[in-house]
Design a protein around this nucleic acid. Structure first.
Lengths: 348, 348
DNA sequence: AACCTCATCGGAAACGTTTACGGGTCGAAA
DNA sequence: TTTCGACCCGTAAACGTTTCCGATGAGGTT
C-alpha cells in the first residue's frame, strides 16, 4: 500500500502539500507549477491511490447513496434502476442496492446498515408498496436527503417523484373511447396501492367528459398481495370471471401491464382475439410490453427519467446540506404518455 | 455524533474495554458480566453506532462487494441480481451495483471506483458480453476474490458460474424431436457470444443421437450487437426470412427467450399459430416467458441459484484471504432444466 | 527601520476505531 | 516470603487523510 507519505517522501515535499496538490484544494493556487508537476509525477510513478476510508473518516463523506427497492423482480424496477445508476454515475456517486422483499424487518435492517455506512442520500423505489407510513420515521429523523419514487408522501421532509396517475387514467380511457368502444371492462388496482385511486379518478373524469356511463358490472378489482407478479394472475382470473359473466365488452382497461398480460391470456384462451374481438390497454410500459404478441398499447411511465429525476433531487439535497443551505422537499409529478401499439383497435 | 469515548466516559471504563465488549472480541472472556452489562447499557442509552469509516480504516475491511452488470436492461439480470442480493444479505455484505452499459470505458472507470472502495469481492454478470479478455487483467492483479456469471474464463484466478449450455441445447432439441417434429428451424446465437457454440454443439449431438438430419437452409444466425434486446428484433426478422423462404418447418428452436418472442410475433403476424401450426422453444426462462401468450416452453437457467452460487464462491474466497489460506478459483457449471409450457405441441 | 502582504511550504492535530503491550490485583503454589 | 498464573483493565500507537496554524523569505509600503 502506497500512502500519501510515500508520495511526500518520493517527491521531497510534505504530505500537506501533496494532499493540496492532488486534490486541487483552494490553496493550490499558491503552489508553483513545477512543484505540482513533481508531486504528480511521483504519485503516478508510485501508483498512489488515496485510501477512501481515511478520506471518508476525515471528510465525513461517503460518496455513496442508498437505493432501496421494495421488490426487484417487479419489471417496473429495471428501467428506473437504470436511470438511477446512470445519473449517479455522472455525479460519481456509487449506489448501494438493497431489496426489501416487501418485508418490514428487512427494511429496517437494511436502513440501519445504510445509515451506518453514512450514505449521503437515499432513494426509495416504492413501486408495489402497501404503505406503512411510520416505516419512514427513521428516515426522516436521519435528515439525509431522500427521494421516493412511485409513492407520494404527505411529509415534507421526503421528496417524491411520481407519474401523474390521474392524467394517465384519463389518457387510457380517452384512447378506448375515441376508438369507438362503448362497452368497456375495467380491472382496478388493489385498494392498498396509492396508484389505484388517482388512476380511477382519471378514468371517471374522462368518462364524465365523454358522457360515457361506466357499467358497474364490468368492474373488477385486483386483491391485495405483496407480490407484484400476482397482478398477472389476478388479471387472468378476473378476466375469466368477466367472460363467464357473459356480459359483452369490446375493450378492457387494465390496472397495469401485468394485469393486461393476464387479461390477454384469458381472452386468447377463451378464443377471443386481441385486438380483433377485444382491445386491451395497460399501464406502465414495462419492457415486455413492446415484445408481447400482440404488442401492448399502454400508458407509459417515463421510468428512466423518473429514476434520473430522483437522483437529481437527492444530489441537489446533498449539495444543500454541504453548503448548509436547506431546501425543502420537492415533489415532482411527471406526465405519462400514451403508447399505441397493437392491442387496441378501432371499432369504427 | 456519539463516539466510543462517550460510551467509555458514560460507563466509567476505557474505550479499549468498550470496544472489546461491544465487539465480543476474544479478550472479552476476561470481562466480568456486570461490566459488560454496564457498557452495553451505556451504549444503548446513548444510541452509540460505531463509525464504519474508522472501523474500516483500522481493520482494512469494507464489508462490501462490487457487482458489475454488463447490461441491466437484459431481463436475464433481474433474477440473478435477486439471488446475489439475497445471499449477500445473509452474510451481511452490502452490494455496490454498477452497470457497464457494455462500454469499455465505463467498465474501467467503475472498476477503479470499486477498487478504491476496497471492495472485498467482485461479481461480474457477463450476460451479454462480447468478451474482451484483457479487460480482466486489472481484476486479476487486484487479487480480490472474483466470480463471473455466464461466461467461462480460461484464467484460474477468476471463478465462474455458468449454465451447462451443451446439455441445455440437447434438452431443447430432444424435446422438439420427441414431440415428433422433423422439420425444425434454428436461430443460432451471435458468433461473439460464448454461449452460442456449446448450445449448438448440444443441439447437434442430440440430432446425431436421434439420427435427425439438420437442414442447413433452416438455420439462421443472430448478428452481433451490443444490445441484448436486439435479440428480439433479430428473432423476428430471421423468422420472417424463414417464412419467406417457403421451406416448411413445424418447430423453431430459438437461441434465447428474446429471439423466441420475436419468432412468435413473426409467426403470428404471418397467420401461423403457435403452437398449433408451429412449436417454438426458447432458452433462459426469463420472467416474461411464463407470462407470454402462449406461455413459452424453454430451457431454464436457474438464475437465482446462480447468483447465490457466485456469492458463495466469493464469500468463501474472502474468508480464505482473511485466514491467509489460498483457494484456487472454482468453476461451477449448473444444470439447466426443461420447462414445458404452451408454445410447443406434439405432432403425433 | 518597522511593518505588512504574498507566495510557498511543513508541523501537528484531528477524524473514531482496534489492539499490542503492560500494569495492576489476588489467590494459590513453591 | 516469593513467585506465578489468571483476571481485569488502561495507555498509547497505529490506520491514512485533510486542514488549521504557523514559519520563512521576498518584496513593497509607510
Amino acid at each position: 500500500m502506497v500512502t500519501i507519505r510515500d508520495v511526500a517522501k518520493a517527491s521531497g515535499f510534505s504530505s500537506t502539500t501533496v494532499s493540496i496538490v492532488l486534490n486541487n484544494a483552494p490553496l493550490s493556487r499558491y503552489i508553483p507549477p513545477d512543484t505540482k508537476k513533481k508531486i504528480e509525477r511521483a504519485a503516478k510513478r508510485l501508483g498512489y491511490r488515496p485510501n477512501q476510508f481515511a478520506r471518508s473518516l476525515r471528510s465525513r463523506r461517503s460518496h455513496a447513496v442508498g437505493v432501496m427497492v421494495f421488490d426487484m423482480t417487479d419489471p417496473y424496477c429495471t428501467l428506473v434502476l437504470r436511470g438511477i445508476e446512470n445519473t449517479l454515475y455522472q455525479s460519481s456517486y456509487l449506489p448501494i442496492l438493497t431489496d426489501v422483499h416487501n418485508e418490514r424487518a428487512r427494511f429496517e435492517r437494511y436502513l440501519e446498515m445504510l445509515l451506518d455506512r453514512r450514505i449521503e442520500g437515499l432513494i426509495v423505489l416504492a413501486n408495489w408498496l402497501f404503505l406503512d407510513i411510520n416505516l419512514l420515521a427513521d428516515v426522516e429523523k436521519s435528515s439525509i436527503p431522500t427521494a421516493m419514487i412511485g409513492c407520494e408522501l404527505k411529509t415534507d421532509s421526503i421528496s417524491s417523484v411520481i407519474v401523474d396517475n390521474e392524467v394517465g387514467g384519463y389518457l387510457a380511457m380517452e384512447h378506448l373511447h375515441s376508438l369507438g368502444h362503448r362497452k368497456i371492462a375495467f380491472i382496478r388496482g388493489p385498494k392498498g396501492l396509492t396508484d389505484t385511486t388517482p388512476r380511477w379518478r382519471g378514468i371517471r373524469n374522462c368518462a364524465r367528459d365523454c358522457q360515457y356511463e361506466i357499467d358497474n358490472r364490468l368492474i373488477m378489482e385486483i386483491p391485495e398481495s405483496r407480490d407484484p407478479m400476482s397482478s398477472f394472475d389476478a388479471g387472468q382470473k378476473l378476466t375469466e370471471d368477466l367472460i363467464r359473466q357473459k356480459r359483452p365488452f369490446t375493450a378492457l382497461l387494465a390496472f397495469d401491464d401485468m394485469s393486461a398480460f393476464g387479461a390477454i391470456r384469458a381472452l386468447t384462451r377463451a378464443g377471443i382475439r386481441v385486438p380483433e374481438h377485444c382491445s386491451v390497454i395497460g399501464f406502465d410500459d414495462v419492457a415486455t410490453s413492446a415484445l408481447y404478441t400482440p404488442a401492448l398499447t399502454t400508458v407509459r411511465q417515463p421510468m428512466e427519467a423518473m429514476g434520473a429525476s430522483a437522483v437529481g433531487v437527492v444530489v441537489e439535497g446533498i449539495n444543500a446540506v454541504l453548503e448548509k443551505r436547506d431546501v425543502g422537499a420537492t415533489h415532482r409529478k411527471v406526465a405519462p404518455e400514451l403508447v399505441v401499439r397493437e392491442s387496441t383497435r378501432s371499432l369504427l
